[in-house]
Structures are given as C-alpha cells and as structure tokens.
C-alpha cells in the first residue's frame, strides 16, 4: 500500500482528521494535506509556512545590482566615448540600468525559489486525488507502516463527511 487518505467536504472536518492523525502518533512531516485553495484560516493550513524566499529575493536583487554595476562600468570604461559632456562613467543615467537589473534579479530569484522549493518533485510524495479540484480536502499518510493502516483508517474516517480511500 502506498497511501491511506480521507476526503473531507470542509476545513473543520479536515482539521479534525489532522488532529486525529497526530493523536495516532503520525508526525506533521508525514501528514499530507491537499486543497484546491489556501486554507490559512485553519491550523493545518499553517504547516510548512517558514521560508527563506524573502532572503533569496534580496540575494537575487544583490546579484542583479552587481551585474548592473559591472555591465555599465565595463562597457563605459572599456570604450570611453564623450556623450554630451557627461563623465565616462555617469552615475545618474547608470542608476536606471542598475535599478532595473536589481529588480529583475529579485523577480527572477523569487520565481526560481518558488519553483525549486514548491514545485520540485519530492521523492515518494505523489499522493493526489482529482476530487480535490471539486472542492474536497485531502488528508492522508503516504507509505504508512502496514501495522498502523487500520488505526489510520479509523482516525481518518471519524470526522463528519469523511470518505477514506487507500492506494
């Protein structure tokens, strides 16, 4: 068996299922919750919230800033041309290029962090049911120990409206 899970019609039932799995000794990291929309009003919706994404965005911005500085400095000093009496390396106009590249760096770094941290396939984590799309909330355990399956099924079937499935 690769997974045992329940489908729940609302957040309150899903929360109960998560609480019962915890009571049965399942760790948070082993519980899979899947929903068709963010469930931030529920405690289970707060799992895995910590992220370094802001820091990576800042790092991306810093890389973009450095690239902008480098590009403007290298190009303007390697072929020094007089343009309307401006200095060869003119800070004011170059600020625009540096600003745009800083923001581009932050945006690209954010996207990369999102893809790598949220969409990159995790080994053994493939549980999904298309009924989630229709509004059901999935709560389950992947690769459960065989001796625990019946206890998990009991825990998952207790909340109102539960439909327990195995795979």
């Amino acid at each position: 068996m690769t997974a045992v899970y329940g489908l729940y019609p609302d957040g309150a039932s899903a929360q109960q299922a998560v609480n019962r799995l915890r009571a049965a000794g399942v760790l948070d990291r082993d519980i899979t919750v899947i929903s068709a929309q963010p469930m931030e009003d529920y405690e289970f919706g707060q799992m895995d919230k910590a992220t370094w994404m802001w820091w990576f965005a800042c790092l991306g911005g810093l890389i973009g800033l450095s690239a902008g500085l480098g590009l403007t400095w290298l190009t303007e000093t390697s072929w020094p041309m007089d343009v309307g009496g401006l200095p060869i390396y003119a800070w004011w106009p170059n600020t625009i290029i540096i600003f745009e590249m800083t923001m581009l760096g932050a945006i690209v770094a954010t996207t990369l962090t999102f893809v790598l941290s949220a969409l990159w396939p995790q080994r053994g984590r493939t549980l999904y049911d298309p009924e989630v799309t229709e509004g059901q909330i999935l709560v389950g355990v992947e690769h459960p120990v065989d001796e625990l399956v019946s206890e998990l099924e009991r825990a998952l079937s207790a909340p109102p409206g539960a439909r327990v499935k195995t795979r």
Binding site: I34, Q37, M39, E40, F44, M53, T110, P121
Partner: peptide
C-alpha cells in the same frame, strides 16, 4: 506538478507578495 499542499500555497502567496512589491 501542482498538488495544492499548504507548503505550495504558502510559497505561492509569498512569491506573489514579493513580486507585487518589486
């Protein structure tokens, strides 16, 4: 490969916040 785990929702909302600011 989107599934809709809490982690994916949080990351998406954080990414959208950062990008909105940028």
């Amino acid at each position: 490969g989107w599934r809709g785990t809490p982690k994916q929702w949080h990351r998406l909302e954080t990414a959208m916040q950062i990008m909105a600011i940028a």
